[in-house]
Design a protein around this nucleic acid. Sequence first.
DNA 1: GTTTTTGAACTGACCAGTCAGTTTAAATGG
DNA 2: CCATTTAAACTGACTGGTCAGTTCAAAAAC
Lengths: 194, 194
Amino acid sequence: MADGRTRRREDTRQRLFEAAVELIAEQGFSATTVDDIALRAGVAKGTVYYNFKSKTDLFEELLRYGVGLLTAEFRAAVEGLPPREAVAALVRSQLEYIRRYRAFAQLLLSEMWRTNREWQQTLILLREQAIGVIAETLRDGVDSGDLPADLDVRVASSALFGVGLVVAVDWLVFMPERPIEDVQESLLAIVRRF
Amino acid sequence: MADGRTRRREDTRQRLFEAAVELIAEQGFSATTVDDIALRAGVAKGTVYYNFKSKTDLFEELLRYGVGLLTAEFRAAVEGLPPREAVAALVRSQLEYIRRYRAFAQLLLSEMWRTNREWQQTLILLREQAIGVIAETLRDGVDSGDLPADLDVRVASSALFGVGLVVAVDWLVFMPERPIEDVQESLLAIVRRF
DNA sequence: GTTTTTGAACTGACCAGTCAGTTTAAATGG
DNA sequence: CCATTTAAACTGACTGGTCAGTTCAAAAAC
């Protein structure tokens, strides 16, 4: 299972992910060359094609991987919490996730609302996956009466997701010196009405 | 001033802007070719280079033009209004602007939080220009006591701008059937605490 | 007659993807 | 143990295609 080969390969894929996510967040997908990615990851170009079908495939797997992590954190964060606290926990975990994987968040922000790209379907699916966890939480809150009955769950959950993303990335890009607690507080204040 | 020649030229530039903004919003800057832009604008490739120094130059002028329009609308919207109404007017005019120039808004959303692109400086400057109008309005509100004295104007104005952008684009991309009044109301609800 | 646009041809840089060859980890077997 | 074999993992030069940007003569618009 964890023999030297698979370990080595996992390590290579990880390094390729990291290199790709940074470069694509900085420059965008098309402006990032496979040579760049290989160079930053410290591997040969051929290795990229040994590990991934194509540049696009690398990107799609990267999206799946990153959103998978986020979704898992969301699920862990709300586990067993009553609705209102669960919402606060969601906001907190989104912020922490974005601080940790800032480049990935920038990449999502850049690509999430585009149209007509080849990976668009993948991204819409992943978006629904992440927003789905938020929606479940809000739904529970509405059903249990903790949240207002007239709350439009679909709208509220996608707004929550989008607002968190943009506020967090804006924070990291333009006012990184600001402590995370402040940002948490501002976001929760904005969002407390849910 | 407005003779037939300059008018014709303005018209050509306008068509090039429109073609470019749509294509770049869909695909990103690098993936959009000058041939594409000329084709969609219904113009020869040579015309692009007669009217603009380069592809990058076209893009920068486009950013300046689009943000200039937004800033002008902001200014017109707050003209003579008391602070709290002015904030509502800002939100409303941002939404209407984004509905009208959806592709440009998508483009801003994609490019605004990137780093290391050639036009990054231009974009930061333009961002400050637009956010500046919001900040002035909030500042006035704080000074006159209509808004809480402890409001962090810098943070609040950039949050206001970012939240409006992401909520509006999300609306147009994922729930276009939803009436603008609903979205206005949700946004104002989120933002009313300012 | 001047400005603007056309359209086609051309150049040179750049880049995704390929593939024949090399290195490395681990399995085999003595 | 150590030597040999195997195939997985990686390498990097190379190819074929693409595209930004240039040029220009001729036409169209004013």
